[in-house]
Design a protein around this nucleic acid. Structure first.
Length: 900
RNA sequence: GCUGAAGUGGUGGAAUUGGUAGACACGUUGGACUUAAAAUCCAAUGGAUAGUAAUAUCCGUGCGGGUUCAAGUCCCGCCUUCAGUACCA
């Protein structure tokens, strides 16, 4: 029999043992009532996709877990929950294909996700798990929707109030009163041009459209007028902008949100066409008004019909037809080659009283500002291009060398105002126009109201009933409004949501009155807008969370997630939170105090080269000899030296069976760093890494790879360094068959190593420098191994420092040396306090009993050592020649520099 | 185009307020142990030149300048890469 050494570092049994213990004893369940200070650490919860986790996903989870464990060790009551954003498109698309209910797909995926997460030894409080597709969760999503429906924005007080407090003008008829009320609601119905995505069969929010294509799937998006539920997020634009200031968020995210809100102040100016018609334009540069040589209005602008001259009607209508059929993507292609048509009409510049032509062009967007602009070709790049192309007049009104200039400066060609600075002139023009009723100062936002409906099945039903008199919200006691069963998950033939297929469900009779249910569902963002609140009190049936729990836990102290949610999720949840705040349901203005974005872990795809004549494959170094195409191969057939295992490849993939493989010494593939994804065959599964090296190794290695915020490629080869470290650590305290921990006093050297480690690791954790923290732990263990230090007095605090990174091995040793958790926590409450020498003190030092210098220390040398250092450097003493230096910089063994 | 972040060995990456550049790890090379391999341990490892050697000298943080006793770090001007954004008046 093989003699199994029982004291080897057996990570499998250790990890199994402790994960079971944590689960069964509910070690990480957080108490809602505690005298300890609270700390709420939240991960952006995942959508449970079918492909499971790859090594990139856990990065943020491990980081938040390290913080959670660290804060617990420091005496905080930590809330660290996890859940699933389980409504979403992939499950629905799978359902359309297979007929399987999305609920089943989703449940299966969640089970898989939880298994994988569990293996990572994350300290979640699973008692608080939530799923957005559970009816006892979306009951409250619907409840919040109704709060928005039943509220309006008080412009005076700049906050949301209950709709019953809305002042309705008395003179209105009953019908008009209803319409007036509806028009003020925070959730309202509007017919607007929406982003219609034929490929997905649904409407998308502006935020979900990137460059004219859908964010998911990359299908083309066109504009189409439709009736939609819309959220009045624009009312909150100012507050969403202002409150960014106080948040401890990455500057880049704050900036994206600022840009998205896109606040710009300027003036709205009226240009009269004739007695009845005037065109309002928005401009941020009223100071250039003397240079406005024409107007441009958007093709959709309603005033067009009443101003176009007869002879131009046909041309204009043709242009409108073409531009309305264009997708956003096609419109953008015109950026370099602008199109437009003259309307035949003229308007009067209110400052100069000059008559200028009116054009239409799709470079002016109907959705922004007033849908019309005054064109100042000399000082606006787009107007300049347009004027050049159509040969329109260009007048310079700000002094500059170039024909085109967009900056500020001295005003010219502006009548009696010449010589004034443009900033000052801006005010003068605005004031003049305001006084003469020809314009006013205004502010414009890029932010649009949030289109909230989706023509889909797998989402929260909107709790609204329609009747001839208008809309009615469901009562609280009718919630949740459960998703009905349908016979097909496709939209109906007439473009309605799949819910409309269930005719029985759709029609309701209440108190003898007939209603039709709203059949659209909410977008995926709805559930994630407020989930951080439900974690505080997930079982509560009376409220979305109790007031006490909200007051105790909010705000989220640390929120970790990917930067891809910079605008979408983070802006929407801030908006909902502010509404809840206004209505008195939450106690903080902002939900997330500190935000950290983890970087992406990239994959290392492998490519081989197929000869274009289909005669076989060649390796990377031979590709230049032939005409070839790049072909992806699964990285599981490639080893660390980039060699392809042709045998296995052929065995698993029949299409290669007959092919020839040409190579020099061995078949080398070409590597490329890309996003990790199934379709690139470059996915590394964390389960495999855990199986081979253990979870503690995976956790430490992911942190060791580089700075948390940075994107970096995964490289399995480097993992042995971390694994060796853990083995070394284990071996330091376990001889071949017994534990060796000494009770003797540690020597100074070991103490110094320990305390340097404590200080550095704590500082690193606080500043999210997990990679250097891991390095420090390695250095410390190397030191202790060299010093053969096995003192209990060193080991105990060291285990606490290690435990956030490698919790399993720390617990195991902890248990073996016979101590218990509660004693440790009280014994070392301030374990980050170090008694290392302060390294930058100023010491007076005398040399030869005569000179007295003030020495700035760069090291932890003591006074005697410094004097010795100076006296041994004869060159230095010679240079001094009796002068007194102001400053001397010394490092061990050398005087680096001095200032006399 | 605009905005933001970043360019350091063969690789991932360290470097407090400007103060011994390359910590820590991977890889590579050599050695020990072993019949052998694996595992483990030890040593060397930015480049160049000189020397048997210890060692010495010079050059080195994308490029070109500048400030300073001292610059990866600060200032000016470029180049490159990545990310976000895109006719927002």
């Amino acid at each position: 029999m093989v003699n199994i050494n029982m004291m080897e570092y057996n990570f499998r049994s250790i990890e199994e043992k402790w994960q079971k213990y944590w689960r069964e004893e509910k070690i990480y369940s957080a108490s809602n009532t505690s005298n300890l200070p609270k700390y709420y650490v939240l991960d952006m919860f995942p959508y449970p996709s079918g492909s499971g986790l790859h090594v990139g996903h856990p990065l943020g989870y491990i980081a938040s877990d390290i913080i959670s464990r660290y804060k617990r060790n420091k005496g905080f009551n930590v809330l660290h929950p996890m859940g699933f954003d389980s409504f979403g498109l992939p499950a629905e698309q799978y359902a359309i294909k297979t007929g399987q209910h999305p609920k089943i797909t989703t449940e299966n995926n969640i089970t898989r996700f939880k298994e994988q997460l569990d293996k990572l030894g994350l300290s979640y409080d699973w008692d608080r798990e939530i799923k957005t597709s559970d009816s006892n969760y979306y009951k409250w999503t619907q409840w919040i929707f109704l709060k928005l429906y039943n509220s309006f924005f008080d412009v005076e007080k700049k906050k949301a109030r209950c709709i019953s407090e809305l002042v309705i003008p008395d003179k209105l008829t009953n019908d008009e009163k209803v319409r007036f009320t509806d028009s003020k609601r925070l959730a309202y119905i509007d017919t607007i041009d929406v982003n219609w995505c034929e490929g997905l069969g649904t409407v998308l929010a502006n935020e979900e459209v990137i460059g004219g294509l859908s964010e998911r799937g990359g299908f083309p998006v066109i504009r189409k007028p439709m009736k939609q539920w819309v959220m009045r997020i624009t009312d909150y634009a100012d507050r969403l902008l202002e409150d960014l200031e106080d948040l401890d968020w990455p500057e880049s995210i704050k900036l994206s949100q600022k840009n998205w809100i896109g606040k710009s102040s300027g003036a709205e100016i009226s240009f009269y066409v004739d007695k009845e018609n005037s065109i309002d334009v928005f401009t941020t540069r009223p100071d250039t008004i003397y240079g406005a040589t024409y107007l441009v209005i958007a093709p959709e602008h309603p005033i067009l019909d009443s101003i176009v001259t007869k002879d131009k009607k046909q041309l204009i209508n043709d242009y409108r037809k073409v531009s309305s059929s264009k997708s956003d993507l096609e419109r953008q292609e015109n950026q370099k080659n602008k199109t437009g048509v003259f309307t035949g009409a003229y308007a009067v510049n209110p400052m100069t009283d000059k008559t200028i032509p009116i054009w239409i062009s799709d470079y002016v967007l109907y959705g922004y500002g007033t849908g019309a602009i005054m064109a100042v070709p000399a000082h606006d790049e787009r107007d300049y291009e347009f004027a050049k192309k159509f040969n329109l007049e260009i007048i310079k009104v700000i002094k500059s060398k170039d024909e085109f200039y967009s900056g500020a400066g001295e005003i010219i060609n502006s009548g009696k105002y010449n010589g004034i600075e443009s900033d000052e002139f801006k005010e003068i023009v605005s004031d003049f126009l305001e006084q003469t009723n020809k314009g006013k100062k205004t502010t414009n936002y890029k932010l649009r109201d949030w289109i909230f409906t989706r023509q889909r099945y797998w989402g929260e039903p909107i709790p609204i009933l329609h009747s001839e008199e208008g809309t009615t919200g469901l009562e609280d006691h009718d919630l949740p409004l459960e998703l009905p069963e349908v016979d097909s998950y496709l939209p109906t033939d007439d473009g309605l949501s799949p819910l409309a297929r269930n005719i029985e469900w759709k029609s309701v009779t209440l108190k003898g009155k007939k209603y039709i249910r709203e059949t659209n569902t909410m977008p995926q963002w709805a559930g994630s807008c407020w989930y951080y609140l439900r974690f505080l009190d997930p079982q509560n049936n009376l409220n979305f969370a109790s007031e006490e729990n909200i007051n105790y836990w909010m705000p989220v102290d640390l929120y970790i997630g990917g930067a891809e949610h910079a605008v979408l999720h983070l802006l929407y949840s801030r908006f909902w939170h502010k509404v809840l705040y206004d209505l008195g349901y939450v106690n903080t203005k902002e939900p997330f105090k500190k935000l950290v974005n983890q970087g992406m872990i990239l994959g290392n795809s492998a490519y081989i080269f197929r000869k274009t004549d289909q005669s076989g494959y060649v390796s990377s170094e031979l590709k230049k000899q032939y005409d070839t195409q790049k072909i992806l191969v699964d990285i599981k057939y490639v080893n660390e030296r980039n060699e392809l295992d042709i045998e296995s490849l052929k065995k698993d993939n029949k299409q290669y069976n007959e092919s020839t493989f040409e190579f020099a010494k061995s078949f080398i593939v070409e590597r490329e760093v890309e996003k990790m994804s199934k379709s690139k065959y470059n996915v590394v599964n964390p389960d495999d890494i855990c199986e081979k090296y253990g979870t503690d190794t995976l956790r430490m290695y992911e942190m060791f790879l580089g700075p948390l915020e940075q994107s970096k490629p995964w490289n399995t080869a480097g993992i042995s360094g971390i694994h060796n470290f853990l083995k070394k650590f284990w071996k330091l305290y376990f001889d071949s068959n017994k534990l060796i921990v000494e009770n003797s006093k540690p020597d100074d050297k070991s103490l110094k190593s320990l305390h340097r480690c404590i200080k550095k690791v704590s500082d690193d954790i606080e500043s999210f420098s997990f990679n250097t923290a891991v390095s420090t732990l390695m250095i410390t263990v190397n030191d202790l191994t060299a010093q053969r230090c096995r003192s209990r007095e060193i080991l105990e605090p060291l285990l606490i420092v290690l435990s956030p990174f490698a919790p399993h091995i720390a617990e195991e040793i902890w248990e073996k040396i016979g101590n218990n958790r509660s004693i440790v926590l009280s014994k070392y409450p301030k374990y980050n306090e170090s008694y290392l020498l302060d390294s930058t003190k100023t010491y007076p030092v005398s040399i030869n009993g005569k000179l007295r210098y003030k020495i700035e220390l760069r090291t932890d040398l003591n006074k005697e050592e410094i004097e010795k250092e100076i006296l041994s450097d004869k060159d230095f003493l010679k240079k001094l020649e009796g002068k007194t230096p102001k400053r001397i910089i010394i490092v061990p063994g050398k005087i680096i520099n001095f200032v006399i």
